[in-house]
Computed example of a mutant assay.
Amino acid sequence: MHGPAMSGWLLMALCAVTGAYCLLRSGGETGEGRRAARAEALMGFGMAAMAVPAAVMTPPAWGWGVYAGLFGVASLRALWSLRRGGHHLHHLVGSSAMVYMALTMAPGGGAAHGGHAGHGVAAAGGVPLLTGLLLAYYAVYVLWSGSRLIPVAAVTAGGGGPTGGGWSTRPELALACRLTMGLAMFAMLLTL
């Protein structure tokens, strides 16, 4: 990821913690909820790996192909799962955006940019229209998921505690993770 090292480290830590929580959450879910939590964990860990500051560690040239391949497979899986409905359209957009960012940051695609020599699809920063559309999508998604978080956090059981289950099954934590990853994706797209 391009940008100052401190923001890269913070973004990496935030995405890694979010991915770890989603992975833990997948153990308490069944069926569709488990698949969604695993997909979100993959996104969190992938975003954490991409957010490592370039000044600290520049991935090998083949690493960007691995990212693109991994998230390409995740995109195909989300596309296949769209027939069941649910959160899969968002997973398709997210994994496709990860493929796009990996291809944009891969060496040999364009001009030098922000410490990574030669990263770019059509030019440094990728295709401006596509980057803009993804930024708009994630801006709307963050606002939407943030608005959904407010009423869920206000729902409590008679004793003032969370309703049912342990900490890994609390719906507001899952929404907070989605909000966090949406913000992180928006930030990563801004650095293209």
Rank of each mutant, 00 (worst) to 15 (best):
T156I: 10
L92C: 01
V93L: 06
W144M: 12
T169N: 10
M181P: 00
G146N: 03
G164K: 14
Y100Q: 04
G146L: 00
Y137I: 00
T169I: 10
R170A: 07
A123L: 13
L130A: 11
A136E: 06
H88S: 15
G126W: 04
V152W: 05
L134Q: 05
Y137H: 06
S95L: 02
A176F: 09
I150H: 12
H91S: 07
Y138F: 14
L89H: 03
L175R: 11
L129H: 10
W144T: 13
Y138P: 01
P171W: 05
T163Q: 14
A102Q: 01
V93P: 02
V152M: 09
W167S: 12
L143Y: 05
G125V: 01
V155N: 09
Y137F: 13
A97K: 05
G166I: 08
G126I: 09
M181I: 10
L130P: 03
S95V: 05
L130G: 00
R148S: 13
T169S: 14
H88E: 15
L179Y: 05
G125C: 00
S168M: 13
G115I: 06
L89N: 03
Y100C: 01
G146V: 04
C177R: 03
S96A: 12
V152S: 02
G160Y: 06
H116M: 11
V142I: 08
L183Y: 08
V99N: 00
T104A: 08
L175C: 01
I150V: 15
A97Y: 09
L129I: 14
H87I: 13
L179I: 05
L130C: 01
H113F: 12
T104Q: 11
G94K: 07
C177V: 03
G126Q: 07
T163I: 15
H87Q: 14
L129A: 14
P151E: 09
A97I: 03
G126C: 07
M98W: 00
M185T: 08
G114Y: 15
L103F: 07
A124Y: 01
A176M: 09
R178D: 09
G146Y: 04
L129T: 12
G166T: 10
V121N: 09
H113D: 10
S95E: 01
G159A: 14
G182L: 02
G126L: 07
S147P: 06
A117I: 09
G85C: 02
S145D: 13
G159V: 10
G118Q: 06
A184Y: 00
P171K: 07
G120Q: 05
M98Y: 03
T180I: 05
A106C: 06
L130K: 05
L92F: 08
Y138I: 06
L103Q: 02
A122M: 14
M98E: 01
R148Y: 01
G118Y: 02
I150N: 08
G85E: 02
T104D: 13
L133N: 05
V142Y: 08
S96W: 00
S145V: 15
A153R: 15
W144E: 12
G85A: 07
A106F: 03
L135E: 09
E172S: 14
G182I: 04
L89D: 09
A157K: 12
I150F: 12
A176I: 02
V127W: 13
G86F: 02
A154C: 06
A174C: 02
A154P: 00
G108H: 09
Y137R: 01
H88C: 10
G86D: 02
G114A: 15
G120N: 03
G108I: 06
G110D: 04
A102Y: 04
V152C: 06
L175P: 00
L173H: 11
